[in-house]
Amino acid sequence: MLAFRDVIVSPYRPEADVLAPRPKYEQFLLRDHSVSSKMAPTINRLPRESLYEVPLSEDSGLVRLPSIAESKWKVLVLQRWVGRVERIEDDNFVAVLSDATNPTNAPEEVELDSVEVSPSDLPLLVVGAIFYWAIGYCDTPGGQRERVSTLRFARLPRLSQSRINKVFEKADRVAALLDGE
């Protein structure tokens, strides 16, 4: 039988309510790790656990995290693109956009103003960089609907040499398979 101990980890601070409303649970219930193995996944411990609604099992052995806070800003995305920087000019850059909303649309080349890029993303603005561009509406907590355009550069870690080697090894295996070796 699973036993739980209550651990008060952190009271929610009022300022957390700005973007993260006060959760339904006021404290965490941490599992007593002396009770059973923490590694064996069971049907009740897997990622399907609902984030908002009625848990599939009340005694699932899951740590009871606070329910996920829902943003008070409601965003409605109308159109999304994935861009790849092709070249950089003085105050702008040229990118190829792939339509993520309707992937059947052909890629198109566009010229964008560098001022569209968030200052902290500017170091990422290099040839070959990937970015995500979305336009839509944002409803503020005060009821104002605003048109928004959001451009965010992808942040991906540099591949390690061992990872690169594995990718090439896999490619070689696939190539050999296709060649019928």
């Binding site: 996920i68 829902e70 943003s71 800003w73 965003v75 409605l76 995305v77 999304r80 994935v82 993520a100 995500y132 979305a134 839509g136 928004v148 959001t150 965010r152 992808a154 942040r155």
Partner: peptide, 9 residues
């Protein structure tokens, strides 16, 4: 994330 602009991120 509850902001669909940032799902790819």
């Amino acid at each position: 994330s509850s902001d669909p602009r940032h799902y790819p991120a």
